[in-house]
């Protein structure tokens, strides 16, 4: 199916915070979470709609590739959105957020939308990081924040879709250079350059150029 835009995401965070499970939960809901089975995947794609436009999300998990500097570097740069995940039942995964964020900010393009995710919200009894702490961290660093559970699927949709909405808004505001695919955004077939006049971010042809 053709799309208006394709957004590339990456998922980052410590190992074991449930990155690949979140990814699978979002891209393939048919895998219903069962208590004795955790399944994840490193790549997935799914179509969503925003503002009645089809938008395809491609999500790349970077797990297991940290050994190579060249790889992490390139991943960050090629993404329009990043989900930064920690585990609310393990304090250290929260403590490492700054390192992840520094890395992301250093390598990514400055417009990349980063969403902070406190995962495993179903495990309330084992919680070590308060929701307020996550909120405070997000506020301090200008991130969007959400607590999710890949197990119960709580907020998983919202996490991915809200990130997409934010990217979409940035496109509308003309912040992203959508003609540069290196930003992690691709224009779909019906938005091909031949009729790029109609795409958001560029000037509508009807408007006089000397408007300001």
């Amino acid at each position: 199916m053709s799309y208006a835009y394709l957004f590339k995401y990456i998922i980052i965070g410590d190992t074991g915070v449930g990155k690949s499970c979140l990814l699978l939960q979002f891209t393939d809901k048919r895998f219903q979470p069962v208590h004795d089975l955790t399944i994840g995947v490193e790549f997935g794609a799914r179509m969503i709609t925003i503002d009645s436009k089809y938008i395809k999300l491609q999500i790349w998990d970077t797990a297991g590739q940290e050994a190579f500097r060249s790889i992490t570097r390139s991943y960050y740069r090629g993404a329009a959105g990043a989900l930064l995940v920690y585990d609310i039942t393990r304090r250290e995964t929260f403590n490492h957020l700054t390192t992840w964020l520094d890395d992301a900010r250093q390598h990514s393009n400055s417009n990349m939308v980063i969403m902070l995710i406190g995962n495993k919200s179903d495990l309330e009894s084992r919680r070590e990081v308060k929701k307020e702490e996550g909120e405070a961290f997000a506020r301090e660093h200008g991130l969007i924040f959400m607590e999710t559970s890949a197990k119960t699927a709580a907020n998983v949709e919202e996490a991915f879709i809200n990130t997409a909405k934010e990217i979409y808004e940035k496109i509308q505001e003309g912040v992203f250079d959508i003609n540069n695919e290196a930003n992690g955004i691709k224009i779909g077939p019906q938005h091909s350059p031949s009729n790029s006049n109609l795409s958001p971010g560029s000037k509508p042809p009807s408007q006089p150029s000397g408007c300001c």
Partner: peptide, 8 residues
């Protein structure tokens, strides 16, 4: 680019 990165 993501394909190239995967190859590397």
């Amino acid at each position: 680019s993501m394909v190239r990165i995967a190859v590397r």
